[in-house]
């Protein structure tokens, strides 16, 4: 009888403990580093809220993983080191695969496939000398240009890539596909009269992934599984159609 009573109280205690466990799970917060001036991947909408393809995908992933995500705006040249240092858990930014990034971060499964475009004044070809190329600081494009020893002008965000050209500081730019799609919608960019070509170098295209902090290796499996689910249940494609004119996966 004493044993039964103890058992009953043990059961009662565990039952009372359960909601606590539930709260603990609900309180799991993911610190997500994002960009804010990289339309259509990440930008502020008219009301000032963060939106964009990468941010919406991350939102779906958070929903799938049943975690609450808090977004921290940063810039591309900071993001890799900050996530590597554990300041953030996830970099919800389209990262092309580079050896330096791979050494510092874990890569989630690719969430789309990108390519880079060469925008330049007519007649200027990649590899020619005597002009400067605008790239984003910390980008794979910057790494590419530096590796070849070409002259460059760095900007902090994708949204600013046209500025150096407009200001006459640069005569060309290497621009990721999604940013280029956005820039081409702007008359002032089109008016620059730049000629565009697709760059086929492998380090400028291909798989783009979110970065995961090496301090949270368990997140990779969860994020990959969640990504697989949203690709299958149609949520991914709705986000794709919302932000981009064609299927980029």
């Amino acid at each position: 009888m004493v044993f039964l009573t103890r058992l009953f109280f043990a059961f009662l205690l565990s039952a009372m403990a359960l909601p606590g466990v539930g709260r603990a799970a609900g309180e799991r917060v993911l610190r997500v580093a994002v960009l804010e001036n990289s339309p259509p991947m990440a930008y502020r909408d008219a009301k000032g809220g963060l939106t964009g393809f990468s941010i919406a995908i991350m939102g779906l992933l958070c929903e799938e993983m049943r975690v609450s995500c808090e977004y921290h705006v940063t810039t591309l040249d900071d993001i890799v080191d900050a996530v590597a240092a554990g300041e953030y858990d996830v970099a919800a930014v389209s990262l092309l695969d580079t050896p330096e990034r791979r050494a510092k971060l874990l890569f989630a499964k690719p969430y789309f496939r990108s390519l880079s475009l060469w925008f330049a004044k007519p007649g200027l070809q990649p590899g020619q000398s005597g002009f400067r190329i605008a790239v984003v600081h910390g980008s794979a494009q910057e790494r590419f240009v530096r590796a070849r020893g070409w002259d460059l002008v760095g900007v902090r965000t994708n949204g600013e890539l046209a500025e150096p050209i407009r200001a006459g500081l640069a005569q060309a730019a290497i621009i990721p596909m999604s940013s280029a799609l956005n820039l081409m919608k702007m008359p002032e960019f089109r008016d620059l009269g730049l000629v565009s070509t697709v760059m086929h170098e492998s380090e400028l295209g291909g798989d783009a992934s979110f970065g995961i902090s090496p301090a949270r290796p368990e997140l990779k499996e969860q994020i990959d599984a969640a990504l697989e689910r949203i690709k299958r249940n149609g949520a991914y494609d709705r986000v794709n159609s919302k932000f981009l004119p064609f299927r980029i996966n």
Partner: peptide, 19 residues
């Protein structure tokens, strides 16, 4: 010409996309 140019740009991207 602008919208034509824009459309042509998307054509180029789609034709070059890995998918």
């Amino acid at each position: 010409p602008q919208s034509r140019q824009q459309a042509m740009f998307v054509v180029m991207l789609v034709a070059s996309h890995p998918s």
